[in-house]
Nucleic acid binder design. Structure first.
Lengths: 251, 251
DNA sequence: GTATGTGAATGGGTTCACAGCC
DNA sequence: GGCTGTGAACCCATTCACATAC
């Protein structure tokens, strides 16, 4: 399912959307952007951030071409241009993109200026690691609450955050403005936890347990299945014939 | 010489499945199977495993219909049938699939009877959690080696495995028959670690660091970008307008 | 009647190639 | 000259609908 975002210019597309006259909110127009594109936009922003910090990798005049940026990110230049065109972002033909302006546009479109407090449910090995994962706060996702059911864990600090009883989820999530819930519990508890998070008002969930989660339609769920990733790698091994077939099971 | 760049996106990657002629096992026809299908096949197998253990959820005669199985997994029945058709798996029209036979077919196709030893590089919070993650050995991926560069960690046991010096990667990987390498280091070290793993003979890599990894063409890389998952969830929040309106912008 | 297997239709996303502008 | 922006072609994946088989 694809989606939407801010835009200023009318880009290509089968049916060109009429320029929205009276924008509802403050100043942002909406168009649909493929999710795959959104994922890459964050990569572009990340690289531009790094360039901005290092102050290098772009030319003296502060511009960068689609070829250069695409090379840094590792994608096809045409894809990058099409991605950026969804934002109506204007580069300069014959020159490239103004790095600072592009960075600002991306930040705006991705909401990178905002902060999205996160709650992690399940303070086992994985949950603890996520609580301490530096990449989350670094990209605007501070972990502000930890939940568990284990009385031995509740009340104790993990990665600087006191573990709360899952039964207080509604209270704590409201207090901490939690926007995203992460489920790092064993599989059997995952659905129950999802229900609790939804009841607590969380409408975005990242789950690490395999198996489906049933949630209301207005709740967005993403799943990361770590074992599945290994399985897909293993499948390539099989296909290569690398793994010595131990037993020959032939029907 | 030819190198390939690991493509970033979580879902979007073009499943390149070259119709390599290396005839695999006899009897099993491994044509090109879409990667998305492979992912779902593992889900089907997982559900069938659970049914087999519980002994329930399937009818007295040991059959299960595409509607039933699809319902349990949470996918479209037509999709399930098409997925299974890639395996040439024969159900019985008017009846359904023999659960035991289907399970066996899936195990065979996915190599689920095999074991794929894993090495985790980077014994920080995340690496330690992965070393202890029960889902890995449960699905045939025992973690057999841990690597780090920190002298304080080397030689000490984590999750029952002694941490080795990364400089001994080649030796240890060969000794432990490591097939898959997992990179759980901070971002700056990721590329170096990938090089080391490749030199050690590992041809399947799962990376948790954002940013691209450059590896030889015969090495398969998958990436899990945890912060990106949150970013995509956040994007949906923005689209919904849930998050307090981003401050006015747009020149 | 019931449920599979599969061509056909649909839709999303990537790549190509070139028109348009600097 | 160089580089962006974008229609069009292409490819992969999902969904539909129905002929086929039990």
């Amino acid at each position: 399912m694809s989606t939407i975002v801010a835009d200023g210019a009318t880009a290509g597309g089968p049916a060109r959307l009429p320029p929205i006259g009276a924008a509802p909110g403050p100043g942002l127009r909406l168009r649909t952007i493929p999710e795959a594109t959104v994922a890459r936009l964050t990569a572009y922003l990340r690289v531009l951030d790094r360039c901005a910090m290092v102050g290098a990798e772009l030319r003296g005049d502060g511009t960068i071409s689609s070829d250069e940026l695409a090379g840094l990110v590792g994608v096809n230049p045409a894809k990058l241009r099409k991605d950026l065109s969804y934002l109506g972002s204007h580069g300069t033909r014959g020159v490239g993109y103004d790095a600072a302006a592009l960075r600002s546009t991306l930040q705006q479109a991705l909401g990178a200026h905002e902060t999205y407090p996160v709650a992690v449910v399940g303070v086992g090995h994985l949950g603890s690691a996520l609580a301490a994962y530096p990449g989350f706060p670094a990209r605007g996702f501070p972990v502000r609450a930890l939940f568990d059911t284990d009385p031995l864990k509740i009340g104790r600090p993990v990665a600087g955050i006191t573990v709360s009883d899952i039964r207080e989820a509604a209270l704590v999530c409201r207090r901490e403005d939690v926007v995203i819930g992460v489920i790092a519990t064993p599989e059997p508890a995952a659905q129950r936890v999802a229900d609790v998070l939804v009841a607590a008002g969380v409408r975005s969930i990242l789950g690490f347990a395999p198996g489906q989660l049933t949630v209301p339609a207005d709740v967005e769920v993403r799943r990361v299945d770590l074992a599945l990733e290994l399985q897909l790698l293993a499948f390539h091994e099989i296909r290569r014939g690398d793994v010595a077939a131990p037993r020959q099971a032939v029907p």
